[in-house]
Nucleic acid binder design. Structure first.
Lengths: 198, 198
DNA sequence: CCTACCGATCGGTAGG
DNA sequence: CCTACCGATCGGTAGG
């Protein structure tokens, strides 16, 4: 079949995903301002101007990476929770922590880039990004409500503050986690043990 | 071994500190790459080239801000601990957490800039910055050792991992802390309560 | 502390 | 997906 290469997206998913893959890797390492469209284009093997065939602007590329990153962690945690349905809040909490850390450090480019860019860009966070994040935070709101109801939380503590500290601690691991020095399973176990000692 | 300059600093402290004050404020908001020497110069009220009379490069300015920021938190925590000498490990831990959060969000420009820039710059962290940070981390190593010795830590948990999670959670508050919504005292109390429920 | 200027690089556009 | 090009801006330097 003949190709309409210069007018329509030729291999729809392919190029777009390839661009995002490289963008995610570069954003993870350098953040928003250090990562340039030229770098991304060179990594992909095309010219910089060609990126504008697939995306409208640099921000659009970054936004896609960030959203995919949050979405990926979200899905992983939801799947882990589904696998532990009916288990105790403590087991479920540990499963969620483990899934979050695994998603963060396993397939890491998108998720790490997401944290890096988001933490950094205090200014103008697009609504799409906030929506994706809020959806993920809701998962933790639910989990922490379970935890509280089961008596896991000290009286007088705010569930919101717990969630903020908790996600901060987990996401902060992008600054110090080294695969050769830390095991995800152990980190998750230790983390939950801090919140509820045996 | 600073004290560069071909001639001698004219009004020694004044200008230099003024530059760093504005640099800290701008770095806090924008991070390393978004903050430009022109912005800093304009805020101070001088020409960009004049910055080179006081500092050798952009990196030198950023480095000074980061080090001052970490140093400030360090001093605040050490002072708080000195005031609670002989108190229980729990009380001392809460005092340290409170002092850390207060330093972070109170006089915030230097400390927030420090976290922002450091979290961001995965690449080349100057030795001076690492030294200042390591010195501060040692304070927490000591505190956590106390905590562990008093039986506050679950068996099988690593003090290093606790410290990393703990500082990550506290420093992550720069992303969500709002003075009108959170009280430092309450945050510190809740934080310690999470680690050792009443 | 200034004026004047530098090469390098940025995101983005024109037009095919 | 390309070549060619744009104005804007970057950190830094010359020379006073």
């Amino acid at each position: 079949m003949s190709e309409a290469a210069h007018t329509r997206p030729p291999t729809e998913g392919g190029s777009r995903r390839l661009i995002l893959d490289h963008a995610a890797r570069l954003l993870r390492g350098g953040g928003y301002h250090q990562t340039t469209l030229r770098e991304i284009a060179e990594a992909v093997g095309i010219r910089k101007a060609s990126l504008y065939y697939h995306f409208g602007s640099k921000e659009e590329i970054v936004e896609a990476v960030v959203n995919d990153g949050v979405h990926f962690v979200h899905e992983a945690v939801v799947a882990a929770l589904a696998a532990e349905e009916g288990a105790s809040p403590r087991v479920r909490l540990e499963a969620a922590v483990r899934a979050h850390l695994a998603a963060l450090h396993g397939h890491g480019d998108y998720t790490s880039a997401s944290i890096k860019v988001f933490t950094f860009g205090a200014a103008a966070v697009p609504e799409s990004v906030r929506a994706v994040r809020r959806a993920y935070e809701d998962v933790w709101r639910g989990l922490i409500a379970e935890w509280q109801q089961a008596g896991g939380m000290p009286a007088g503590n705010s569930p919101d503050v717990l969630r903020l500290f908790l996600l901060g601690a987990l996401n902060g691991s992008t600054d110090w986690y080294r695969p050769e020095r830390h095991a995800i399973d152990a980190l998750a176990r230790e983390f939950v043990a801090l919140l509820s000692p045996h």
